[in-house]
Design a binder for these strands. Structure first.
Length: 301
DNA sequence: AACCCGTGGAA
DNA sequence: TTTCCAAGGGT
């Protein structure tokens, strides 16, 4: 079972979302910023942040010139602040080693901080119109259903996943059209062939192995979902909340109120933030986001 | 391979 | 209320 490129591309032309990072004139760097923000994060939460971000820091060198503190504050509560740190590091590498131009080669892209297999391929396809498989959870789900007839994707296998999508791209004559097909495949998984309640009535595909098999349910006994409440991740979030809100270094006591009940966990979370380079400690023992001003002229001495 | 890393909306 | 899920990456 395969997917007719015409079915999908026609649908994408008429029904694809007008996301701002898809607009004409958006640079590869600005697209890369969107890809960092979209890692494990819904489009709806990136939409309010991305335009301001790329207006403020339109190039890798402009981004690299900012402090980590500035970047972490602009990132706000987008989640996984390590992504913001890596985006900043990525900007510095591109400015220093690539003449301020995002590379167009998958291998080079994947060497960049915070850029893995998905993001490297997304850049090659979406920014540089290359014929490369772009495999995210949406693509894996659409392929699992339309091609293999399964409700849910099997465990990720880079080799097999890429081979599946390569087969779909191979029948498309032009590379730039194949790249657009890659975007359309993701879009279908994001808005029609969704995880929870797929809207098959709106599906543009005329062939679907899952439909032909009468929509068999997934048989996947998943492991229990990761909790959030009470985890180190929540504690880290609380600590960073305080640091983002303070323009000058704070005392240990000011941080302690973030998680008063469990000092051991609190110390562990703070140590991990320091280790990740998301927090730094000055000579006086106070804590701050990295690179921010240390002198508070309003402080008593 | 399995686990860690944020956050918030929807069911 | 709890659970699931969202354009992943690093170790």
């Amino acid at each position: 079972m395969s997917i007719d490129p015409g079915d999908l591309l026609h649908w994408f032309d008429s029904c694809g979302r007008d996301l701002p990072w898809r607009a004409p004139g958006v640079t590869p760097w600005q697209i890369l910023v969107s890809e960092f923000m979209l890692q494990q994060t819904p489009v709806s939460r990136v939409l309010p942040i991305w335009p301001d971000w790329v207006a403020r820091w339109p190039t890798p060198s402009a981004t690299a010139a900012a402090t980590p503190a500035d970047v972490l504050r602009a990132w706000g509560k987008l989640g996984y602040p390590r992504r913001a740190k890596r985006l900043h590091e990525c900007a510095a590498v591109i400015a220093r080693d690539f003449d301020d131009v995002v590379p167009d080669d998958v291998e080079a892209l994947q060497q960049l901080p915070g850029v893995g297999s998905y993001t490297a391929r997304a850049m090659a396809a979406f920014a540089y119109r290359k014929r490369v498989p772009v495999v995210d959870i949406n693509v894996r789900r659409v392929v699992a259903r339309a091609v293999h007839g399964h409700a849910e994707p099997a465990a990720p296998s880079t080799k097999r996943d890429h081979a599946d999508v390569d087969a779909l791209l191979a029948v498309i004559p032009k590379a730039d059209r194949a790249a657009r097909f890659s975007a359309a495949l993701m879009e279908l998984g994001a808005v029609v062939c969704t995880a929870r309640a797929p809207n098959c009535a709106k599906c543009p595909l005329r062939s679907c192995a899952w439909r032909d098999a009468d929509y068999p349910a997934g048989s996947a006994p998943k492991r229990p979902a990761q909790r959030y409440a009470g985890t180190d991740r929540q504690v880290r979030g609380r600590l960073l909340d305080i640091l983002r809100d303070n323009d000058f270094p704070v005392t240990k006591a000011q941080l302690d109120v973030a998680w008063p009940a469990d000092a051991v966990q609190r110390e562990r979370a703070l140590a991990s933030l320091l280790s990740d380079g998301l927090v730094e400690q000055d000579a006086g023992g106070r804590f701050a986001l990295p690179g921010q001003d240390r002198n508070d002229s309003t402080a008593s001495r």
